[in-house]
Amino acid sequence: MRLGKIRETAMQGVFFLTAITSIAAVVIICIFLFCNGIPAMAKIGFSEFLGGQKWSPTNVPPSFGIFDMIIGSIYVTAGALVIGVPVGILTAVFLARFCPASLYKVLKPATELLAGIPSIVYGFFGLMVIVPLIRQYFGGNGSSLLAASIVLGIMILPTIIGVSESAIRAVPESYYEGALALGATKERSVFKTILPASKSGVLAGVVLGIGRAIGETMAVVLIAGNQVQIPKSITDGVRTLTANIVLEMGYSTGLHREALIATGVVLFVFILLITLSMQAIKSRSENHG
């Protein structure tokens, strides 16, 4: 009896510790980022840093303006959504409602495999296939906003497909039957009743996809061109916040290094906003039943 009690308390302690680990990791990362990043931002000047369009960290005196890269990250993410969202949602609809069982057995694991491919491999694929194609058909040197958008669009597919498919499957069959019984075709029943009913789940998938796209680094560095500029066309090069960090971290020192950490802070704030909107979507869909 007493031994059981001790075991129980011990187990509770273990659970507590494991739970604490992940929270501690988040807290420590926060502290690290903000302690290093915020003073750097203050030194550079907040508006200078966030709104400045000149990034020349090795000049004397140096300039640290990351505005172009903030825009770059947003453009690349938006581009990924333009490609990934329609394809992802339609694939999810197909998998959940139209796919014959035999095909499903192949397709479903294939979409899951897509999630397991390392991002550097996506980068290679972009470099060897997408970039040359863009160079050939659109001109320029190929490394561009378009290339990054296409590859990121593919990379966020498994997230959008997976989350959307389970949202679509969770919709009560009675909506579908109700629509059919009114004489609606299968397609209309699916797209006008089932898909709208699953919209908060689908939206959650899209938001997760945004998170994935904005944080992606390796694939983007290889194919985006990485020029510090606001691209004027989709075939122009672009540098994202993540690319900026990974390109210069190796040789940076002093304020330059701190400025890169501050870039990480900005990225972190983006992710925080995405997570918060995710929570908002969840609680809204719970309230709506």
Binding site: S174, Y175, E177, G178, A179, A181, T193, P196, A197
Partner: peptide, 10 residues
């Protein structure tokens, strides 16, 4: 057809 369980669309 009207079903046993009311099934208005959302």
């Amino acid at each position: 057809m009207v079903f046993q369980k009311a099934n208005p669309f959302p």
